[in-house]
């Protein structure tokens, strides 16, 4: 199973090891781990005490599978693993994990970044932050759409 949407935390080392277990063709693994930040960077807003991730069950898994399929079509990949957590998470906790195995590093680095950029704008997750001033929905960032546009120009 290359894609998981779950409440539970995950073991980064075990996931990376499992991705290439028994595959002597793999020469590279690139991975990304996203964490809950306690402060709004640069906004001077109140500290984030916790974050709750809502998603669209069914569509979420399908959207992530689609993104992985697109990455496999673009680069020569040996394995892909995507885990996204949902529910209530505290600052410092892991939210998302992407790991890509390939023969050489370029494919792994590029595909890992591509998957994160697509996930940010195409997978139906929404973050609600708990602050001393109450809950607030996180706004989508223009820079995320711009990151996606970069891959589309390269197509």
């Amino acid at each position: 199973m290359s894609v998981s949407v779950q409440q539970a935390d995950f073991d980064v080392g075990a996931e990376i090891a499992a991705l290439t277990a028994g595959d002597a063709q793999a020469g590279a693994v690139a991975s990304f781990v996203g964490l809950v930040r306690s402060d709004k960077v640069g906004a001077g807003g109140p500290a984030v005490q916790a974050m709750t991730l809502e998603h669209y069950p069914g569509m979420t898994e399908q959207a992530l599978e689609d993104i992985v399929t697109q990455a496999r079509g673009r680069w020569d990949l040996l394995g892909v693993r995507v885990i996204h957590r949902v529910g209530r998470l505290l600052p410092g906790e892991r939210i998302v994990f992407v790991a890509v195995a390939s023969g050489h590093r370029h494919d792994a680095f590029a595909a890992c970044e591509f998957i994160m950029d697509y996930l940010k704008t195409q997978a139906p997750f929404w973050k609600n932050e708990e602050t001393p001033a109450g809950g607030r929905w996180v706004d989508a960032r223009e820079s995320d759409a711009a990151a996606l546009g970069r891959w589309r120009r390269e197509e």
């Binding site: 998603h55 997978a123 139906p124 997750f125 929404w126 929905w137 996180v138 989508a140």
Partner: peptide, 10 residues
């Protein structure tokens, strides 16, 4: 059919 604001996962 689903309606929703822009997504903010990751």
């Amino acid at each position: 059919v689903a309606f929703f604001p822009p997504v903010t996962g990751g």
